[in-house]
Design a protein around this nucleic acid. Sequence first.
DNA 1: GTTTTATGATTGAACGGTTAGTCAAAGATA
DNA 2: TATCTTTGACTAACCGTTCAATCATAAAAC
Lengths: 199, 199
Amino acid sequence: MRDEKMTLIMDVALKHFANEGYFRTTISHIARHAGISKGLMYNYFESKEALLKSIVHKSVNEIYHNLDIDKDGTLSTEEFEIFIRKIDKMLKENKYFWRLLFQLLAQIDVREQFLNAFPETDSLIHPGHEPGDTNYPWQIIKMIRDYFNRKKEAKGNSFDAETEIDMFFITMAGFAMKSIYSEAGDNEKEINRIVGLFK
Amino acid sequence: MRDEKMTLIMDVALKHFANEGYFRTTISHIARHAGISKGLMYNYFESKEALLKSIVHKSVNEIYHNLDIDKDGTLSTEEFEIFIRKIDKMLKENKYFWRLLFQLLAQIDVREQFLNAFPETDSLIHPGHEPGDTNYPWQIIKMIRDYFNRKKEAKGNSFDAETEIDMFFITMAGFAMKSIYSEAGDNEKEINRIVGLFK
DNA sequence: GTTTTATGATTGAACGGTTAGTCAAAGATA
DNA sequence: TATCTTTGACTAACCGTTCAATCATAAAAC
């Protein structure tokens, strides 16, 4: 029951953080839209930043576990396509979270923090940890890099793995932007082209 | 002289808006870094939002005129490559402005406004104009769409112009993100791949 | 079954800090 | 002297946070 209300608050907050921005969204505003008083917010969350943190941690963990990376940390060719389709699905399903994340990452001082933060940190804003293999984003990046480097072994030296890796991240970033900022729709054709280009 | 000081203020403000975010950046902060008093800021700019508007308008106009669209509004195949290289150059040269723009566009209510705003509007935040052919972003989008549609005429119906247009914008958006959020460096290889893919 | 007590949920007025914006006074210049 | 620039203390509004008081509920006592 308490958990349900926390989830409600987090959902409302996420929506407003994502669409109007974290700093422009006031606690009163969230409270009003969640149908509770301002004071009660502080029974559930210590502070505005704690609320943000909860949202980000919850979503990152969900996403990470949906990606199901830790099976063996390697992408086969078939898994690569599945991986891309999973990302497409996640972008659609967590649109608001991704909007929030892009917004936060656009703030230079939060960027580095984030990449090194998961799963362990206590703060999104204050320094916590050094980069390491146990951090989610790094694991995923490494997995993709490995995929392209294995492809180079198969294809020979004419295959420029570094440029391919760059192009892959570029394309996926652009795809993510399009997906999260446009109304729901089918991206099947674009996904097929991406698979065709990088598989 | 007055213009020089205005430019100084705008440069300092842009840098901080871009890196720390518009809402987190205070007028005092900008004044201090520009070496003037807070009060004096208001001799040059009516308000914080007016300062933002000036920066955005100035940069958008610069970019638009650098792109040199209005020559004839059509991209030939050679011009297409030049166009992409111009964008690469502009992304590098106006890194801070692009960071600010992406940040602003991440706020849903500002997005639509912006697309329909240039060159005429008075406010970034309050409604001004309907979409139309005289607005900069729309002109550019149209020019690119026309390019791919002409390509379809040449290549025949197996060429899916709509998907190509989508993929082009996706790729360029991702490329822009990489370019503006990474330290200065050479993107020659990526540019060549993009040209290869879409020319 | 009714009253009392205890516990936790809920409220909103009040507080303190911050910040955009103002303005009277001081300084510089011509 | 007159005009324009510059200052920084001040104001008003806003917002995150606190907290004393109220309400709801259910267990305990009778």
